Lab assay of single mutants.
Amino acid sequence: CHSECLGNCSQPDDPTKCVACRNFYLDGRCVETCPPPYYHFQDWRCVNFSFCQDLHHKCKNSRRQGCHQYVIHNNKCIPECPSGYTMNSSNLLCTPCLGPCPKVCHLLEGEKTIDSVTSAQELRGCTVINGSLIINIRGGNNLAAELEANLGLIEEISGYLKIRRSYALVSLSFFRKLRLIRGETLEIGNYSFYALDNQNLRQLWDWSKHNLTITQGKLFFHYNPKLCLSEIHKMEEVSGTKGRQERNDIALKTNGDQASCENELLKFSYIRTSFDKILLRWEPYWPPDFRDLLGFMLFYKEAPYQNVTEFDGQDACGSNSWTVVDIDPPLRSNDPKSQNHPGWLMRGLKPWTQYAIFVKTLVTFSDERRTYGAKSDIIYVQTDATNPSVPLDPISVSNSSSQIILKWKPPSDPNGNITHYLVFWERQAEDSELFELDYCLKGLKLPSRTWSPPFESEDSQKHNQSEYEDSAGECCSCPKTDSQILKELEESSFRKTFEDYLHNVVFVPRKT
């Protein structure tokens, strides 16, 4: 048989008469490798580009789960590009990614509803959504962080984005990388972005840091009482949809009607710091009717980097990364020049730590249904340095008659930039024990000054392991946590139920 035959053949030295091919099969003959313009397919066939392209389009058009959109890589027609490569849609070739590779997620039936953290986790790592997304989240724990972890990498949506009755959302900033909504599939009414009845939605994105392009379709905003109209108009300008909307697409009466839409800028007039305090004062603000001013709200939190936005980490279910302080308005003076500047002394802060701070007014709604208010920009203030805590785990070892090696770990709280350490030492008198000992005694162990690591005695271990207080009263049991108490109650309830079950099964009433 021919060298490319495997198993047997019907005619000697003829690659077209093989029972099976050793390498690849091409047009009725066995070959060692697939010549151009053919590609290896499933490690035994040679196919042309049209064959591989037909497989790709067949799966793409069917949208069946589990099928493969075949691509070409290293002269092979394979189910998908290997790690580190992405497909070129024009020629199906796998090309190296520039940075992290995109991950295209194809949605069944063309859309997916995100109504819980669990459903959001199914899209973790996706960068391109081939379909439409509907966000409908009523509640949950730590929602802002969970949504950002699972949806934060999405850069492109081919269909539309719909935010509907998501009472738990305060902001859409968890879509931190969303840059493009194509609108290839539109919501009824030709809408590519749809926001309806979101009672706590206050911000779409921080438009000073976020760009969003909507290729096709219109915007729809109705019944978002805490979303200011200025935020919607800003989205029109940034996304390129200005002029597409009709009169009733953006409701003037049901958007922002319960919001404090600040239209003035508060400026800080005085800032002073110490290692654990920050004193702030800002310019006074009074609405047209000074009785509408209820006070100020001061927001602050630790910020290692200057990239904080107002609604980071917030949701309507209680999660809030900001510390909020309510401040009463100052006494009002008739003389504008003698107006008191409101302020606040922030206490209990960490030394040498940068804080993000902003302040906003708290006002009631005027009778004319106009909203007044003022808010400052987010500023960054760093507390002063102070003395560091003591170095940890000092170790001293003498390696000769004239040297001592000293080692330690950095302090747990540096409280500033540590530039150097101060080492103090003092000579001590020799131990009298060394002169009084009889060095001729056998088995004498000389006193040693070398360091030995501390260890816990058996008594201390027994005390720590004991669940009861000892007789001397030195140790006591740790208080039980809520989960331990709940577990004990469940076990007790189970024992009672099981005992009742045994009584009912074992003891049967005697027939009379």
Rank of each mutant, 00 (worst) to 15 (best):
R347W: 12
S333K: 05
I157H: 00
L143Q: 15
N263M: 08
F175N: 00
G110Q: 12
M346G: 03
G343D: 13
E236V: 13
I135Q: 01
V170W: 11
W322I: 03
Y191W: 04
F299R: 14
N150G: 05
L349Y: 00
H106T: 14
F299Q: 05
A195C: 09
Q306K: 11
L294Q: 03
L133V: 12
K253D: 03
S389Y: 09
D289K: 03
Q314P: 01
Y305V: 15
D115K: 14
E187M: 11
G243M: 12
A303E: 03
G240Q: 13
D257H: 08
P394Y: 05
L280Q: 00
I163F: 12
G131R: 00
F174E: 01
H341T: 09
F220R: 10
N150V: 05
Q354V: 08
W205S: 02
P304G: 03
E156L: 09
K360S: 12
K267T: 09
P351A: 11
F358L: 02
G125S: 11
L294C: 07
K162T: 02
R291P: 15
D115P: 06
W282N: 01
S171Q: 06
L266V: 07
A259N: 03
A385S: 08
P391M: 03
I137T: 14
G139S: 13
E187Y: 03
F268K: 00
P342C: 15
S401G: 13
R164L: 13
L147N: 03
L151F: 09
I135V: 03
A251Q: 09
L227A: 03
K209N: 15
F175G: 00
I157P: 00
F174M: 06
L180C: 12
T213A: 09
G348E: 11
L172G: 02
N399M: 04
R202S: 12
F220T: 08
M297V: 04
T254P: 09
D292Q: 10
G313H: 13
E184W: 10
P410A: 15
D326K: 03
D312I: 15
K350A: 07
E156M: 13
S333F: 15
A374V: 09
L172V: 09
N198P: 00
D377T: 06
N399C: 02
Q403I: 02
F221G: 05
P304L: 06
G152I: 00
S396Y: 01
N211K: 13
A144I: 07
S260E: 13
T383V: 02
A149H: 10
L107E: 12
D315E: 03
N248E: 15
S400R: 07
I134R: 06
E184A: 09
A259S: 08
A251W: 12
L186G: 12
N340A: 09
N136T: 15
I327C: 01
D249E: 15
A251G: 14
G110F: 08
A303L: 05
Y300W: 08
S119N: 08
I137F: 04
P330K: 07
L349A: 13
V397K: 08
L298M: 14
Q403H: 07
N150K: 06
C317V: 10
R244P: 13
A303S: 09
S119H: 03
R247T: 08
I379L: 11
C261N: 03
W352T: 05
I214H: 02
A149E: 12
P288Q: 07
K277S: 04
K177Y: 07
I357V: 10
Y223A: 05
P225E: 14
L294G: 15
V363G: 15
S400K: 09
Q199E: 13
S402L: 13
I154E: 00
T254E: 11
L186D: 15
R332K: 05
S401F: 12
Q245F: 03
L107S: 07
L151S: 01
P342R: 08
K267Y: 15
S119R: 04
R247V: 05
A120P: 02
Q199H: 12
E148V: 07
P304V: 01
A149R: 10
I214R: 08
D367R: 11
K209R: 06
W408K: 00
I327F: 14
F311I: 15
S116K: 14
R138L: 05
P388F: 01
V324Q: 04
T118V: 04
G348T: 15
K267A: 10
Q339C: 12
N211Q: 14
K103L: 08
R124S: 10
E187A: 01
K234W: 09
V170Y: 15
D115F: 05
G183F: 12
T383A: 02
L265Y: 13
E246Y: 08
Q354G: 09
G373E: 04
Y300A: 09
N320H: 10
Y160W: 04
I157V: 05
R244F: 02
S274H: 09
R291M: 07
K267Q: 12
S260F: 05
E368T: 14
H341L: 07
P351W: 13
F358R: 12
K177L: 07
L161Y: 01
P287M: 10
E283G: 01
L293K: 04
N141H: 01
A356L: 02
T215K: 04
W205A: 04
K337W: 14
G256A: 15
Q403M: 12
S401P: 08
Y160M: 14
E237W: 15
L392A: 06
E237K: 14
D292G: 09
Y167H: 07
T371C: 08
Y160R: 05
P284M: 15
E155A: 10
S208F: 13
S158A: 13
L186T: 13
Y380I: 03
S166C: 12
Y194H: 11
G131T: 01
N190Q: 04
L143N: 03
K301R: 10
N136S: 06
N198S: 05
Q258T: 13
P284L: 10
Y160G: 10
Y160C: 12
P329F: 09
L196D: 04
I271S: 02
C261H: 04
V170A: 09
T371R: 09
L204K: 02
N211F: 02
L123F: 10
A144N: 03
L266K: 01
E236C: 14
K301H: 12
I404A: 03
I278Q: 00
G295A: 09
T353H: 15
L153K: 06
T353R: 07
P329H: 04
E368F: 03
S401Y: 09
E302I: 07
E237V: 02
T254Q: 13
D249K: 15
P411N: 01
E237F: 15
S400L: 06
K350H: 13
V324S: 03
A144Y: 12
V325M: 13
W286H: 01
E302L: 05
R182I: 13
N340L: 11
T361A: 09
E262S: 13
L107A: 05
P388M: 01
V128H: 15
I154M: 12
L279V: 10
E231Y: 05
F299V: 10
F268W: 12
Q354W: 13
S239G: 08
S171C: 07
D326L: 02
V117L: 14
Q339I: 06
P388E: 01
L172D: 00
D312Y: 07
E237T: 14
T364S: 15
G110R: 07
N198E: 01
Y160S: 10
K409L: 10
D249L: 11
I214A: 08
P304I: 11
R202V: 10
T273R: 06
E302R: 13
G110V: 02
R291G: 05
K407F: 04
I135N: 00
F193M: 12
T353F: 03
S333D: 08
A259F: 10
I154Y: 00
T185K: 14
P330F: 15
P394G: 04
L180H: 12
K375L: 15
P388S: 07
H106P: 09
D393K: 15
D292M: 14
T127S: 08
E122V: 14
L143P: 03
N200P: 02
Q121I: 13
K301D: 07
S158Q: 08
L147W: 04
S319G: 03
L212E: 00
N263S: 14
N255K: 04
D249F: 06
W282Y: 01
E155G: 14
N340D: 14
L362P: 15
D367H: 04
V117A: 12
E146G: 11
Q216K: 00
S260K: 05
S119M: 11
A120V: 04
W282M: 10
K267M: 07
Y167T: 11
L266D: 00
E231D: 15
N224P: 00
F175S: 00
P351Q: 04
A303K: 01
R202L: 13
V324C: 07
K218T: 14
E310Y: 15
T241V: 08
